[in-house]
Amino acid sequence: MNQIFKRTRAFFLLAAVLWTAFFGVAQATPFDSGMKGLVIEYKVAPANRPALYAYMREQGLDQLEQWKREGKLKNYKVLFGRYADSPVWDMMTMLDFADVAQAARWKEIERTMPAGLGPQALALVTSVETNPVDQWFEGGKSTSNGVYLVIPYDYLVSTEKYVSYVEGYLLPQVNGWLQDGALSHYNFYIGRYAVSRHWSSLLVLEYNGDEGIGQREKLTARVRAKLAGSDPVWEGWSKDKSAIRNTRQYILADELRKP
């Protein structure tokens, strides 16, 4: 009997090893290591918007580019809100780091240049919110004439369920917009330590110019109608979405680039 037990146990152990070899373990996610991104939002008085804009064009972008050359960050993008709008930010900077160690070293910059700004710009800013994030999804290709729509969400379920919702409901729509050509690129972030913050995930949509974003409503309706007739998983999530996330105020913005 012991021999039978040992052989049976050995069989199942071998089967487990083979299963892992062929099918792998649970899929890795960004949460398996430390965060590798920051989203920094800056608010200024309406009268100071032109001065902040000028500072970034004349000094701020050069400083970010220098840090990139020095290996202090992997990439960056700076968006400036198209309109003065008190409830939301005026400028947002998205920082991507090559690895966890590089991200951790950002604290050294914060000690002398809080939020990555010099004294001249800090004097203009009334508030800063810094959100540690992970990029979960990205698609398309960024262009030189992008018009951005930034959509913050606060999700109400576990992160695992929320990611399933994003994969089953949000991404099929976004990919449809990309295929149409009106949308050129997107990033989707999930925040770390999001308790009490005004958003816990962020969708950054880059449209193909003002003409592209002008087609948003019509395109959204067209893609949803197509999915409703062909994707039962998408249909299932569409009935449930109000219990999964709250949508915050959309922000229309343009990318700040050197002249």
Rank of each mutant, 00 (worst) to 15 (best):
L149C: 12
A221P: 05
Q3P: 00
T220Y: 12
L18W: 06
Q135E: 14
Y193D: 12
E167C: 01
K107C: 01
V39L: 05
P119C: 08
Y83T: 11
L178G: 04
V166C: 02
L256Y: 04
L79T: 06
Y53P: 00
A10G: 15
L171S: 05
R192Q: 05
L171Q: 07
Q3S: 09
F5K: 15
L219K: 00
N75Y: 08
L203P: 01
V44A: 07
P132L: 02
A10C: 07
A16M: 11
V163N: 03
A98S: 15
N187A: 06
D62F: 09
E160T: 15
W136M: 08
E211Q: 08
V88L: 11
G118Q: 04
L256M: 15
I251L: 12
V128C: 06
K72I: 00
P119T: 09
T159W: 08
L202E: 00
D62I: 06
Y250L: 15
G168K: 05
G146W: 01
T93C: 14
A47F: 03
Y155P: 07
S142H: 08
T112Y: 11
A26S: 11
A16E: 04
R222C: 06
R224V: 11
L227T: 09
T159H: 12
S158H: 08
Q249L: 10
S196N: 11
L156H: 04
W67Y: 13
L52C: 13
A47R: 13
K258F: 04
T159I: 13
Y55F: 14
A225T: 12
Y193M: 10
V100F: 02
G181K: 04
L205Y: 01
W234D: 11
V223T: 10
Q66K: 15
Y42S: 05
A194F: 03
T8Q: 11
N208K: 03
V223D: 04
K239M: 13
E206L: 09
A45L: 14
N2E: 14
R222A: 15
W177A: 11
E70A: 12
G81Y: 01
S196W: 05
G37L: 00
W19D: 08
L79G: 01
M1E: 12
M91N: 06
V150L: 11
G37D: 03
Q66Y: 11
F12M: 11
S144V: 05
L61C: 03
D85I: 06
N175I: 05
